[in-house]
Structures are given as C-alpha cells and as structure tokens.
C-alpha cells in the first residue's frame, strides 16, 4: 500500500511532515546543489531579528556524546536584508516557508512579524521564544511575556503563528496552554536543552558563553516526552523537534502527538539526511500498511484510553 505523507499543519499543506529546524539550515536556499529542496515538507529559516545580529564570540560549537552544544547567538542579517535577499530565493523553491523570529522585547517580535507579514512568500511565522543564548532571560520562562508576544503578533499578522519553546520550563503543559489561549496556531517542541561542557586540558568551558544549548540524538527521548505531554492538553498542532536522525525517530514523535517534525542536527551532519528521513518514514508506514501518516498522529495517547 502507498502511504500518503501529506499533512495539514495549521492550514499549511505539507507534502510530507519533515521540516528543517530553525538555525540549522541557513536561510534555506543555499544547499540546492546538494539536495532537492522541493522534496522537503517545509523550510524553517534561521531566526531573524529586527536588526542584524553579530552573534556570540568563538568558540560557538562543541561536540558532545551523540550531540552538539552550540552558542551561535542568533547571528543573522536582520529582517529587512532578509526580505531583500534570501526571501525571494526561498519563495521560488516551491515549498512552504516558515520564518523564525526572535527579539529582545515583545515590541521587537511584533514589529519583525509585522514587517514579514506584509510580504508574499511566507506561509507561517515561528516565534523563537526559547533561544537560550541571549544574555537576557529566556522568554518562555515568563508566561505573561509569552501571552503578550503571541497576542501582539496575532494582532499584526494574518499568518499562522507557531510558538517554539524551550524544554526547560517548570511545566510544558502550562506554557503550551497559555500559548493556545493567546491565539497561537501551533507549537514547536522543543528547542535545545541548556547545557555545558568543560575542556579538561585547559580547565575552561568549551563555549565562549560557558553555557549553550545541546541538540542531537542524545536529547530525543526528553523532547518526545514534551510532545506527548502537550498533545494531551492542547488542540493546536505540534511540530516535534529534538534529535531526529532517522525515519524511526520521526515516527516516534508523530506517535507521541506531532503533526510534523523538524530536523536540525542531523542535517548539519549531512543535508541528505533530510531526504533519507522522508524516505524512511514512507518505507516504515508502508511496511505497516498505514494509509496516511495522519492516521498515527498521537495514537500512543489514544491507546492508553
């Protein structure tokens, strides 16, 4: 049986549930010579801010067991340069484009989202409410701020709004419910985990900012748990994210409740892994005679009654 991989995420039609993860795929068009970009479910850009941002000092990357620790610090060219350059190339690829947005205050989020929403070629905005690499606090540690940003952005934008959260919150359910009540159209669970690694030769932290965010295969079970908990409490769809290396990993997130998944670290290892994951999802579901990937979203919850 041929399995249908189409999903509808907050009104966006995706030909398959595999997305790039923000911050791991550049502005989205640069790898056209290495993989067929139009085979992807959607492209999520790296996070864009109102003004350009230099990012953090070196070193920014450290490898850990089965993962990567990073402190890039949202290096990007700023929303206006993004619109003039990358956006035009992105919109020609022929897959939905989701632009990741961050700011240092609610008004920056809102203004950036407003500027983007006036442009064609964008299918949704993903609010990065969770980057752990800004010197100030992580926004999603403050429920009032989350609500203020989501409501503010919804007021200025007709695009579907997705909120991406840090997994390091007291209660993931509480925060996704607040986001849903504030009008969000979907959530991404989850970003990297705050983490640290130390060089035992130099006795110094391996990152310039001492702490960073860890991603990769090592975080997957913890992020699957976030998706599972959130699915039981909200109606809006979930993008599962965290250490997806194979089709099996992606299906695990979908079974826990994700409508789509985003792949990051694995595509840094090789961009071809994105296409491999799509093929593997199809192979596994066909082997199990599943008619549509939609049929298995969140069914681990249902099987528990």
């Amino acid at each position: 049986m041929k399995t249908d991989l189409n999903v509808n995420f907050a009104g966006i039609k995706l030909k398959n549930p595999v997305l790039t993860a923000s911050g791991t795929f550049g502005y989205g068009y640069e790898l056209a010579d290495l993989i067929s970009l139009n085979e992807l479910g959607a492209i999520v850009t790296k996070t864009i801010t109102l003004e350009s941002c230099d990012g953090n000092l070196q070193p920014r990357i450290a490898e850990v067991e089965s993962g990567i620790l990073n402190t890039i610090g949202l290096q990007n060219i700023g929303v206006r340069a993004f619109i003039e350059g990358p956006l035009e190339k992105l919109s020609k690829i022929g897959v939905p484009v989701i632009v990741s947005v961050a700011g240092s205050s609610p008004s920056e989020y809102i203004e950036t989202a407003e500027i983007l929403s006036m442009k064609n070629g964008i299918s949704a905005i993903e609010l990065n409410l969770s980057c752990p690499n800004l010197k100030k606090r992580i926004i999603c540690h403050d429920l009032r701020l989350v609500s203020e940003i989501v409501r503010g952005v919804k007021n200025v934008s007709k695009l579907p709004i997705i909120a991406k959260f840090s997994p390091l919150v007291t209660d993931i359910v509480e925060i996704v419910v607040v986001a849903q009540d504030s009008g969000v159209d979907g959530v991404t669970l989850a970003n990297t985990y705050p983490a640290m690694a130390i060089d035992i030769e130099t006795f110094k932290p391996k990152l310039s900012t001492f702490k960073g965010g860890v991603s990769g295969a090592c975080i997957r079970p913890m992020s699957v748990r976030c998706v599972y908990d959130a699915y039981q409490s909200i109606k809006v769809p979930i993008i599962g994210c965290g250490g997806i290396m194979t089709g099996e990993d992606a299906i695990e997130f979908i079974l826990a409740g994700a409508t789509a998944v985003s792949v990051g670290s694995s595509s840094l290892v090789s961009p071809k892994n994105l296409i491999k994951i799509i093929c593997e999802i199809k192979d596994i579901l066909e082997r199990k005679n599943i008619k549509s990937v939609k049929d298995i979203i969140g069914i681990v919850n249902k099987s528990l009654g």
Binding site: G23, G26, L34, R60, L268
Partner: peptide, 9 residues
C-alpha cells in the same frame, strides 16, 4: 558542525 555555512559555528 556542518562545513556548509548552516550552523554558523
């Protein structure tokens, strides 16, 4: 991490 300009490390 990537060698391609994507991780910006």
């Amino acid at each position: 991490a990537c060698g391609l300009g994507n991780c910006q490390g």
